[in-house]
Computed example of a mutant assay.
Amino acid sequence: MAIVVVRLTDTHGKFIGRWTLLTNVSNEITSEEVARWYYWRWGIESFFKLLKGAGHDVEKWLQRSAGALLR
Rank of each mutant, 00 (worst) to 15 (best):
M1D: 15
A2C: 13
A2M: 09
I3V: 14
I3S: 10
V4L: 13
V5F: 05
R7G: 12
R7K: 15
T9P: 07
T9E: 12
D10I: 07
T11N: 06
T11A: 15
H12S: 14
G13R: 12
G13D: 04
G13H: 15
K14S: 09
I16V: 15
I16S: 14
R18M: 02
R18F: 03
W19P: 00
W19A: 09
T20A: 08
L22T: 09
L22K: 11
N24S: 05
V25P: 08
V25S: 01
S26P: 07
S26R: 04
N27W: 02
N27K: 06
I29T: 13
I29P: 08
E32H: 03
E32V: 05
E33M: 03
V34H: 08
V34A: 06
A35W: 07
A35I: 01
A35C: 03
A35N: 01
W37E: 00
W37D: 01
Y38R: 01
Y39A: 03
Y39N: 06
W40S: 02
W40P: 05
R41F: 10
W42T: 14
W42E: 10
G43S: 01
G43W: 00
G43C: 11
I44C: 04
E45A: 10
F47I: 02
F48S: 12
K49N: 04
K49P: 03
L50G: 10
L51V: 02
L51N: 03
K52N: 02
A54D: 07
G55Q: 13
G55P: 07
V58R: 05
E59Q: 14
E59V: 11
E59L: 15
K60T: 12
K60A: 13
L62Y: 09
Q63P: 06
Q63W: 14
Q63E: 11
R64N: 02
A66D: 01
A66R: 12
A66K: 12
G67A: 12
L69Y: 07
L69S: 07
